[in-house]
Amino acid sequence: MQCRPDQDSPCRSRRAPGAGICGTRMFHHGASAGRDSMELRVVEAFFAVADELHFGRAAARLGVTQGRVSQMIRSLEREIGAALFVRSSRQVELTVLGERFHTQALAGYEQLMGALRDSREAATVVGGRLRIGFLPGSGGYIAPVVAAFEERHPDCSVEVGSVPLPAALIPYDLLASGEYDIIVGWAPCGDPKVVTAAGLTVGSTFISTPRAVVVPEGHPLTTFETVTWDDLVDYELLNPSNTVRPEIRDLWTQRSTPSGRALRYTADDLLTMGGGRERTVEDLLFLVARGRGLYVSITALMDHFPQQGLALIPLRDAAPKHLVPMWMTAAETATIRAFAEVTAANRPQGVEMQIIEQGEWETDCHPC
C-alpha cells in the first residue's frame, strides 16, 4: 500500500498524548448492523494502534490477539472505504485520511470513554451527592441512619429533608423525575411484578406498624373498638392523587376490600383540596376533622401528630404499613446501595412498632 507522492507528508506518525487513550478493556458488543453502526471495539482498536503505532502492543493493551486487531482495522477501513494505516515490516504509520479520522473522532471518543469511566465509578464507588427524602414524622428515626451513613462515608454529600404531601404518600414521580435519589416512605403494596415493571426497587423494611382509620369525633365508626375494610365502604376516603397514573397510584392506594367491595374516594384529591398547594400532615388531619373524608393511616399517627377532634380506630384486617427505602432501579448506584444497607443495619430499637425482616413487605401485598 503506497502513499501518493504529490501530497505533503503523505504518511504521518501520530502518538496520542498521555499513557494511551483506550486502556479500558472492552465490554460486550452486539454485531454491526450497517455502515452507520460502527462497533466501539473497532474504534478502540483504531485508537490503540494509532497510539502505539504497533499492532502487537495495541493487541496486548486491548487483551486480544494481534490477528484480531488487524481484522478490526481492516473492517474499519472497509467501512470507511480507504486505508487508515500504512503497514510495513519496520513501522506502522497513519495515512492522511487516518490522521483526519483520528483528529475528528478523538474528542467524541474521549468523551464517551469518560462517560463510561464515570458510570462505572458511580456503580462501584460510594461518593458524590445523595438526595434523601423521608416521610413526614419519620425524621427522628431517619436522622441516626443519616448520621451513621455520613460517618461511614464522609466523602458523600448528603441532602436530606421531609417530603411534603401528597407526594410523600405516592413518591414514585419524585424518584422517576430524579428530584430524589432515594426516599424512605411507605412501601408499595400492590403486585410486586407491577412494582418491578415500574422500575422501582424497594429495600429492606425499616419499620412496620399496624393500620388504623382516622375519623372525626362523633363519627358512627367511633362506636367500634376496631373496624374492617368492609366497614369503610359506606364512607369516602381522602383521595391522595388524581394526577398520578392509575397503575402507579394503585400500588399505594387500596381500591377494594378483601371481599371485593369497592372503596370510595373523594372526587377532589389532596392537592385540589389545598388549592393546588402542597399539604402537611396537619392539613390532612384538619380535612378529616372538617368531615371532608376519612383517612387510612397507622395506629401511631397521633403520637407524631396529635390533634383534637379526631378518633383513631384500628383497622384489624389491614396488613401493616412498612417504612422502606425506595429508589429507581435504573438510577441505582453504589451510594444508593450503601445507604440502603446502612438503613437495614440501623433499624430503631425500643419503639412501639413491629420490626420485621427484609422482604416481608412482599408477603402481604394484597390488600394494600
Rank of each mutant, 00 (worst) to 15 (best):
Q91W: 12
I313E: 03
L237S: 07
A59P: 00
R25K: 11
V184C: 12
F101M: 14
H28K: 05
A267Q: 13
R292T: 05
L169Y: 07
R245W: 02
T363E: 13
Q2G: 15
H28N: 08
A82R: 11
S162K: 07
L232Y: 06
L312Q: 07
P320L: 03
L237H: 08
V43M: 14
V125Y: 11
I248D: 03
G133C: 01
G98E: 10
L76W: 10
P144R: 08
L284R: 10
P320I: 04
L315A: 07
D191H: 05
P246H: 06
A122D: 13
L270H: 02
Q91V: 12
P5R: 12
F85A: 07
G199M: 09
Q349R: 14
A48W: 02
S32I: 08
L112T: 11
A147K: 15
T65H: 09
A60K: 14
G23P: 04
V126W: 08
Q358F: 11
L310E: 05
M273E: 09
E151N: 14
Q349P: 00
V158K: 02
L84S: 09
T280P: 08
L221Q: 04
G18V: 06
V158H: 04
G199A: 05
V324P: 09
R90A: 14
R290E: 15
F206E: 06
R117G: 01
H153K: 08
T329D: 11
A340C: 14
V49G: 08
N239H: 12
P320V: 03
F339C: 01
R290G: 00
H153W: 15
E179N: 01
H54N: 15
V214C: 14
R249Q: 11
S75P: 04
K193V: 05
E352Y: 06
Q349D: 12
A330F: 02
A338P: 03
T222C: 15
C365E: 00
L175D: 01
F339Y: 13
M113G: 00
G139E: 14
A289L: 05
R117M: 07
T343D: 02
C368I: 07
P258E: 06
G128V: 09
I183Q: 01
T201P: 00
D230A: 15
I207C: 08
V146E: 03
F206I: 12
A197V: 02
L237R: 13
D268C: 02
M302I: 09
L76C: 08
P136M: 04
A167Q: 11
R129D: 15
D181P: 11
P144N: 11
V64P: 01
G291Y: 09
P348I: 12
T257G: 09
F286E: 09
G114Y: 01
S256V: 09
Y265T: 01
I298F: 00
S297R: 00
A143Y: 08
G199R: 09
S138V: 11
V324K: 05
A340R: 03
D51C: 13
P314N: 07
L287T: 03
M1C: 06
K321V: 11
S37M: 08
P246F: 03
E39D: 10
G18C: 05
G127H: 09
V194F: 00
V202K: 04
P192T: 06
M38T: 15
G67I: 01
C365T: 06
R15T: 14
L294G: 02
G293Y: 03
Y295T: 02
E159R: 15
D268K: 10
P188Y: 00
S70T: 13
